[in-house]
């Protein structure tokens, strides 16, 4: 975990550039979504008022780099070049080792990438401050679970490289689906319940992004928040087991590229 933190802290300029970009896009998304609420002519849309929506956007902009929906191809790159051999020669299971590194990376991102947008947003937009004391600890747990879950999903997408070598196809599909159905582009509750409920229960996607943000803006009651976190935990368990199974199968048919 320390390695992940240390590795990502090497690239200071990239961190600053990333935080700046997230903040700029925060303004764009915030204005667009506030215009939606204003255009709807009602005080709330899908349970979000203007303050909740702005908070959703700014926390979302910060969370993007913590959860890291896209842009992780380390495993796939190492499969393609054959360097994955070094991972298999360590006395630790590759899934465990990559997860630990990813949590270190997420820790670094939580400090450097989550904080700037979250501090910038309230200066220019209305902001929703949680009313219940349980919300913040639940949010933290939910972010950790979302990070692990997202790692698992990314690992599975990368692991297709064991079979395909080039993962650009699965990666583009993942970026598209996770962004739209994870709740990055718009709050999923804008969609009809008949669509949202199955999406939430039958896929891990809303648990990646929408769940922690909804917890932060207290869209639901505490018991329902707890239920959503439990659902996240269940998805984490399932996806991590799947990662182990896929990794085992891959190792059995592994061909090391490049001799």
């Amino acid at each position: 975990m320390g390695a992940g933190f240390r590795r990502y802290s090497t690239y200071r300029q990239a961190t600053i550039a990333g935080a700046f970009t997230n903040t700029v896009f925060g303004f764009l998304r915030c204005y667009v979504l506030l215009a939606v609420v204003a255009g709807a002519g009602t005080a709330t849309v899908g349970g979000y008022d203007a303050a909740r929506l702005a908070t959703f956007v700014w926390f979302g902009q910060g969370l993007l780099a913590v959860v890291l929906l896209w842009g992780w191809t380390e495993l796939a790159d190492r499969i393609r070049t054959g360097d994955v051999v070094a991972d298999l020669l360590r006395p630790v299971d590759p899934v465990t080792r990559y997860l630990a590194t990813d949590l270190g990376r997420a820790g670094h991102a939580a400090v450097t990438r989550l904080v700037p947008p979250v501090l910038t947003g309230p200066l220019f937009f209305p902001f929703y401050v949680p009313h219940r004391w349980t919300t913040v600890p639940l949010f933290v747990v939910s972010v950790v679970l979302a990070t692990v879950l997202c790692f698992g999903c990314r690992y599975l997408v990368n692991a297709t490289g064991y079979w395909l070598l080039d993962i650009r196809g699965p990666m583009i599909l993942w970026a598209l689906v996770s962004g739209v159905l994870g709740g990055l582009y718009f709050p999923l509750r804008f969609l009809p319940d008949a669509l949202v409920v199955p999406l939430w229960v039958l896929t891990p996607l809303p648990s990646l992004f929408q769940t922690p943000l909804d917890i932060m803006v207290e869209i639901d009651s505490t018991p329902r928040q707890l239920w959503l976190v439990a659902l996240q935990a269940a998805w984490v368990a399932l996806v991590l087991v799947l990662c182990r199974v896929v990794q085992r199968r891959a190792e059995r048919r592994l061909v090391v590229q490049g001799g």
């Binding site: 390695a3 051999v85 070094a86 020669l89 490049g258």
Partner: peptide, 11 residues
């Protein structure tokens, strides 16, 4: 493995 690295590229 002479043609591969087991070290951390960034560290």
């Amino acid at each position: 493995f002479g043609q591969r690295s087991q070290l951390w590229w960034d560290l």
